[in-house]
Amino acid sequence: MTEVQDLPGYRRRIRIEPRTSAEGGAVLAMLEDDMHCMAVTLRHEGGVVTAVEPVMERAPWTTCPGARAQLIATFTGQPLSEVTAKREKRANCTHLHDLAVFAAAHARGRPLVYDVLASDPIAGERLLELRRDGARLLLWRERARLLVEPESASGLMLHQLRDWIAALPADLQEPARVLQWAGLVAHGRTIPIERQSRAADLPPNCYTFQPERAVIAARVGELRDFSKGPDEPLAHIAGRQLARL
């Protein structure tokens, strides 16, 4: 069987780096893929977020940078236990919000890297792979937008996996969500940029797509294809962000 890494397609890397002390610490979460390059640092003391430091190097819409202030307002002063997917996600950039949630969840854990590889469709079929710290953890096969592997999820679409993921062992639930979200975003590679240029046509699921911003948002269109050439996601930003921890 052809390996995902040998096929053209979408790539995403998420890297989480916690630093702890007796009083508190900081945790950095970074993400880069074809369309996005972002990072969030949470500083915390006594289990409470004392500072939120978002970075947005690449984003798909001109209005996206304003979401940095929204993230700071959402999570500054909150207990780490309250930095969850349930807090104002639609009002935020979903990617910055996800990074903040990852950072909080791993604030007292160990460094972690997730890599997602999603092949472009070939005859309606895609392979989706997730690696944790370089080792393959999940491999899904999709045909005509329906999963055919793993067998337990056969017949489901990616956006229908909530209950299936909730039934997985606890240590697989976060990786499965990472692969699900990235697999949905990866569909954008097959849509011509001119068909992605009207935010007002999209549901209000994030900061940019709220009605007051959707009417003024313009597509940036700065894309990178990490399946071609030697470059790897986060290679150029990780050192700078780690130096600030």
Rank of each mutant, 00 (worst) to 15 (best):
Q78S: 14
D120H: 00
D231M: 09
E32Q: 02
A135Y: 10
V101H: 07
T50I: 10
L147K: 07
V185S: 06
R11G: 02
L156P: 05
T190A: 09
V27H: 03
A26W: 04
V185I: 08
I216S: 09
E53G: 07
S197D: 15
V48S: 12
A67H: 12
P211H: 07
L146E: 15
P203A: 06
E17W: 12
T63Y: 06
R224K: 07
L179W: 04
I72S: 08
A91I: 04
A51R: 11
W140N: 09
D6E: 14
A29I: 00
A243E: 11
E57F: 06
L168D: 07
R145L: 13
R240P: 09
E125A: 01
L117I: 14
V215G: 02
T20V: 11
E142N: 04
R110F: 05
M1N: 10
A238L: 13
P8K: 01
H159G: 02
V215S: 05
D6M: 12
A200E: 11
T94D: 04
I165D: 04
H187F: 09
L80F: 13
G25C: 01
E45Q: 05
Y114C: 00
H159P: 01
L242G: 03
A103W: 00
L42Y: 03
R219Q: 13
G124H: 02
A103I: 00
L117A: 15
K89Y: 02
V101D: 06
L179N: 03
Q196A: 05
L31M: 04
W61I: 08
M56N: 09
G109Q: 14
A214L: 10
H97W: 12
R126K: 07
Q210H: 10
L80H: 14
R90E: 11
V55Y: 02
H236T: 03
L184G: 15
A107Q: 14
D6S: 14
L184S: 10
A200P: 10
N92A: 14
A22C: 09
M35T: 08
R132N: 00
E3Q: 08
T41P: 07
E232R: 03
P8M: 00
W61G: 09
P79I: 15
A153M: 06
A200V: 14
G24I: 08
A199D: 06
F226Q: 01
V148C: 05
W140Y: 12
R126P: 13
G183L: 03
E17G: 05
H44I: 09
V4T: 14
A144T: 06
R15P: 03
L172M: 12
R224A: 05
A243T: 10
R68G: 13
A200Q: 10
Q180W: 13
V48R: 15
W164Q: 03
